[in-house]
Design a protein around this nucleic acid. Structure first.
Lengths: 209, 209
DNA sequence: AGTAAGGGTGACCAGGTGGTCACCATGTCT
DNA sequence: AGACATGGTGACCACCTGGTCACCCTTACT
């Protein structure tokens, strides 16, 4: 029998990588529905049947790619959670670590962004839920620490604080990955580090006089 | 001759509305590429040829819908710019006004969100640019006023401040339109007004002790 | 009554899609 | 040499897409 996921994993690693890279690029460029298996196999120079042997169908291919990515997503955060240091410097670390992750996996992040507001990705709810929960748990732990040590303003609502942190992190990453070309709505600071610093300062003090 | 945009505008208003509503819903549900003209005309109970008589092609239909929407988008902001009151209450007003706009045009906002990270919408750059510029101009004016009256922390970078305001407004609206179901990452306050208030307080004071 | 114009129609077209499957090539056992 | 398993192939299928166009129907004007 030749039609299992095993078939793909038996392949030489080099070939596995080529297939996954090209498929990931296709999903990043076109989302799920508009991604074309014909284009993928044309670029790879293999037969269409092979892809269906490896992954069963289009959804199987996507799930294979993205479930691995979700697992990787959670990595960089854990490293920081176990770090010492005050609340705001840990936040700044998070900005930087997440930015580095996105620099390392730009295609995956583009898929994630497309999935955010586009309903018809396979397993969308599961994937987004996993990512959100990981983030919420991570940020929630940071906030709890900071509340305990008195680093946060008293009277802050925990949920709201987590939401705000998540917002800033999200937007920092979006802006890092997809700078909005022309309009004067992008922040001036050039480097990742400068922007992370500016965001952190804002989180600390707000805008008021 | 029967093939101009005029043809559509000659139609009874009631029919124009039905067509635009159904087409808008299709784009909101499926984005641009996956939107199906066949489905639209099936739901409307009219012939496919009619749509092409009215708008020339699929892109023409989309442009007709979204260019009207962009014009409407700019409305609610202007009203506030001419308002008196301190900086932060004007910001809070902006949250509320934008939220109201989205409640009134939920389908349009869903299209906007899809367009944000999906490249293949016709005239995407132009539309997004217009919206961004309108926002940047509006927020920039608010910031300039606040700097002049000393309501903002000294030393704030203007661009960065506009960016941060835009971020918060954007995210406030996203959360209002598409609350992220399960995970504990949504803010606790229930009503639009409560959330606007909480966001504003955060903008004023930040999170630091 | 004749005619021109405009809205409306739906069978039809070329092209692309995900998916199938009978078949082929190669290597490894007995 | 034969049998079996495994990976690989691409013509083929049903289906859907945006778009076309020759034709119809109704109204209005002469």
């Amino acid at each position: 029998m030749a039609g299992t996921r095993q078939t793909f994993e038996n392949l030489p690693e080099e070939k596995q990588d080529r297939v996954l890279t090209e498929a990931t690029r296709e999903f990043a460029d076109h989302g799920y529905q508009d991604a074309s298996i014909n284009r993928i196999v044309d670029r790879l120079g293999i037969a269409k049947g092979s892809v269906f042997k490896y992954f069963g169908n289009k959804a199987g291919l996507f799930e294979h790619i993205f479930s691995r990515a979700v697992a990787d997503f959670k990595g960089p955060l854990k490293a920081i959670r176990d770090t010492d240091g005050d609340f705001f410097s840990r936040i700044e670390q998070s900005f930087l670590a997440s930015g580095a992750f996105i620099d390392a996996h730009p295609l995956i992040y583009r898929i994630y962004l497309k999935m955010l507001f586009n309903e018809n990705f396979p397993l969308r709810e599961r994937f987004l839920g996993e990512i959100r929960r990981a983030h919420a748990k991570y940020l929630g732990a940071l906030v709890d620490d900071a509340v305990a040590s008195g680093e946060l303003r008293p009277g802050l609502d925990r949920e709201m604080t987590v939401f705000l942190l998540h917002t800033m992190l999200d937007r920092f990453l979006q802006n890092h990955a997809v700078p909005s070309q022309d309009a004067g709505i992008d922040p001036a600071p050039r480097t990742l580090a400068e922007r992370a610093r500016a965001m952190t300062e804002f989180l600390r003090h707000g805008l008021g006089a």
